[in-house]
């Protein structure tokens, strides 16, 4: 199959480079198909500056392909992109000078120590190693950059790779499955580092399988399926549109019709004697009004989760 390369330049997706308010990343109908037919098709996306952007999808959906396109490891067959206002293929080195990257599978040069590796990364960028910032990150993640990398466990190598991604750039960091191999305590420290990076004006674009992590961290979420974006939204608005589950226990049985007629937007999932499970979308106040009139012994309202949205697209 011959695919015509029809790349085009984005019309000033970002007007200025530093301190700009436009999107950090813009993808416009980006297509790259691997020989087997997998890849990304007509991908369009905007990652707001100063956000933590979650990129969700199962294995093989096209997350890593998208990231590789942004880093100029892969070239598009059609479409355009802008990263920090620059073309990631034509201006590849200038773009990569300003972004940090954590690959999905971390393979560090085994014969180096963590410090040697970080110094090498700094030399490659032509910058001095920010010692103070490094010390803070090493402390936050409880990392050890002194031994040779080949002697470190997977989790400890991951810590060095995270430091490498966040240390040398302040504008944009691209993370592919960043918390693989990290224990829960280090994950929390890592989340704090990401929040700090964002608070300092940086943008984070991360792919993840861990929905709770994305839900907790990300301001925006895109869901990719079979190489196409199926949903892009603010995390909160995505959750607001999802049903919340209400578990209800009453002191005495109530007619099912009483509930369904009073709350037409409520779906009754189960109704057995004094126990019932309901699902409610949107405004919860009518439900609370009804509950005030019923002999309620116990009630539990589960918040809507990102998982519900995710599963809706994949179930």
């Amino acid at each position: 199959m011959v695919i015509m390369v029809t790349r085009r330049t984005l019309p000033n997706a970002c007007a200025t480079v530093t301190g700009m308010s436009g999107p950090a990343i813009t993808l416009a109908r980006l297509t790259h198909l691997h020989p087997g037919g997998k890849g990304v098709r007509e991908l369009s996306l905007e990652v707001p500056m100063g956000s933590i952007f979650g990129f969700l999808g199962p294995n093989g959906a096209g997350k890593s392909t998208t990231i590789r396109l942004l880093l100029d490891f892969l070239r598009p067959q059609s479409g355009a992109a802008s990263v920090l206002g620059l073309d990631p293929w034509r201006d590849g080195p200038a773009v990569r000078q300003r972004i940090g990257y954590l690959p999905g599978e971390v393979h560090l040069p085994e014969n180096l120590t963590g410090m040697e590796f970080l110094r090498y990364a700094a030399r490659l960028r032509g910058v001095a190693l920010p010692e103070e910032r490094l010390r803070a990150m090493v402390e936050a993640l409880d990392a050890n950059p002194v031994p040779r990398l080949k002697t470190l466990s997977k989790g400890n190598k991951q810590k060095i790779a995270i430091i490498h991604a966040l240390l040398l750039t302040r504008e944009l960091v691209i993370l592919d499955e960043p918390t693989e191999g990290l224990d829960p305590l280090v994950q929390q420290a890592f989340h704090r580092l990401l929040a700090q990076y964002r608070d300092e004006g940086g943008t984070i674009f991360m792919s993840s399988h861990v929905l709770s992590e994305v839900e907790r961290l990300c301001d925006h979420v895109a869901i990719i399926r079979d190489g196409r974006i199926v949903e892009v939204a603010r995390t909160e608005s995505l959750k607001a549109n999802k049903a919340r589950r209400v578990s209800l226990v009453l002191d005495a049985g109530v007619d099912r019709e009483t509930v369904s007629s009073a709350l037409p937007d409520v779906r009754i999932v189960a109704w057995e004697g004094t126990s019932s499970i309901l699902e409610i979308t949107g405004d919860i106040r009518p439900l609370l009004g009804l509950l005030a009139r019923l002999p309620v012994r116990d009630v539990a309202i589960e918040p809507a989760s990102l998982e519900d949205s995710f599963l809706e697209y994949y179930a």
Binding site: L71, P93, I99, E105, V106, H107, L124, G126
Partner: peptide, 14 residues
């Protein structure tokens, strides 16, 4: 093969 090229080429080198 070793997986180390990604780190080098993610830097600003052509």
């Amino acid at each position: 093969e070793r997986g180390t090229l990604a780190f080098t080429l993610s830097g600003p080198i052509t």
